[in-house]
């Protein structure tokens, strides 16, 4: 009984923590082809605030 309760509590805590942010990923994202004379050799992130890239709905 005690272990079930602990497991449920952990699951609940995990779901709360997990829902505190939405993780974006380019893994399955496509990009249109492009005629170009250049390639991106380096990316610099000069955003003053690097904590997040936006605000979105928390969802259900």
């Amino acid at each position: 009984m005690k272990s079930t309760f602990t497991a449920l509590l952990l699951l609940f805590t995990f779901s709360i923590v997990f829902s505190q942010s939405r993780t974006l990923s380019f893994k399955n994202q496509s990009l249109e082809s492009l005629d170009r004379q250049f390639y991106i050799a380096e990316v610099i992130d000069s955003r003053p605030n690097k904590q997040a890239v936006g605000e979105v709905q928390a969802g259900l």
């Binding site: 505190q20 942010s21 993780t23 974006l24 496509s30 390639y39 990316v43 936006g54 979105v56």
Partner: peptide, 29 residues
């Protein structure tokens, strides 16, 4: 509202994304 984040630092996410889709070809700058 909750923050939207990337799993990796933005530089790494984008660099990987760029390299996958727009890799260096020939004499590109």
């Amino acid at each position: 509202m909750i923050p939207a984040i990337f799993a990796q630092p933005l530089e790494e996410e984008l660099q990987q994304f760029m390299t996958n889709h727009y890799p260096k070809q020939g004499n590109q700058e």
